[in-house]
């Protein structure tokens, strides 16, 4: 029997919440900056590029960590379809975290722009200068960002349903974690069924 953890690895939990805050902030910064010709445009844009690249770096650490440490199994009473949807949205969330900053970097490359992170530090281009490609990627950056926001809302609702309504320990597995059992690893039945109903309160 492979021993699956009851919680996400503590490092994964930290990165999860750090990235959640960063990604949500970036979505607001992104739509906010393009909505104005005022001074905020340049202030936010100067923040947008380095934070976006930091998200890319973080997901490059997070993804291998997730693959190496695994995830707790979902409660056995969760319908198969919901389990599939959960897995699917998680894959899409990783794809967006990886894809969106890459699209940002690629579109600036294709537009012939310097990919400036700070005054003085710029990344090399990852695509040749090509205006048609720029147009395509610029459009994709918007579309993927809006889908990303929708996906985050779905993910957020699901997490709170687990935490507040089902109270099945799923939310806790990404927050404070479960108290360690006194002896030995938990058996599969112990894993969720023994947690008290008020687990996520």
């Amino acid at each position: 029997m492979t021993c699956r953890p009851t919680d996400f690895h503590p490092a994964l939990r930290v990165v999860h919440w750090l990235m959640a805050a960063m990604v949500l902030a970036m979505l607001f910064i992104g739509v906010g900056m393009v909505s104005t010709t005022g001074p905020l445009y340049l202030v936010l844009l100067a923040l947008h590029r380095p934070v976006g690249i930091a998200i890319l770096m973080l997901v490059l650490i997070r993804l291998p960590l997730r693959l190496a440490t695994g995830a707790p199994t979902l409660p056995a009473d969760l319908p198969m379809l919901q389990q599939r949807i959960a897995k699917g949205t998680h894959v899409l969330l990783y794809a967006a975290m990886l894809g969106l900053p890459l699209i940002g970097w690629a579109m600036l490359s294709a537009g012939g722009y310097p990919v400036a992170l700070t005054k003085g530090i710029a990344l090399p281009p990852i695509l040749p200068h090509d205006l048609a490609l720029y147009a395509l990627l610029r459009e994709a950056h918007t579309v993927v960002a809006l889908l990303f926001f929708a996906l985050i809302l779905v993910h957020f609702v699901a997490a709170l349903m687990h935490g507040l309504i089902r109270r099945d320990g799923v939310l806790r597995s990404m927050t404070v974690g479960h108290a360690k059992p006194a002896v030995g690893p938990p058996t599969p039945t112990e894993k969720y069924s023994t947690t008290p109903a008020a687990d996520d309160d």
Binding site: F28, G32, S35, T36, T37
Partner: peptide, 14 residues
Amino acid sequence: FAWAAGWIGGRRIN
């Protein structure tokens, strides 16, 4: 989000 994007609220020049 809609407010940040300028879809609702005061008019901004974009």
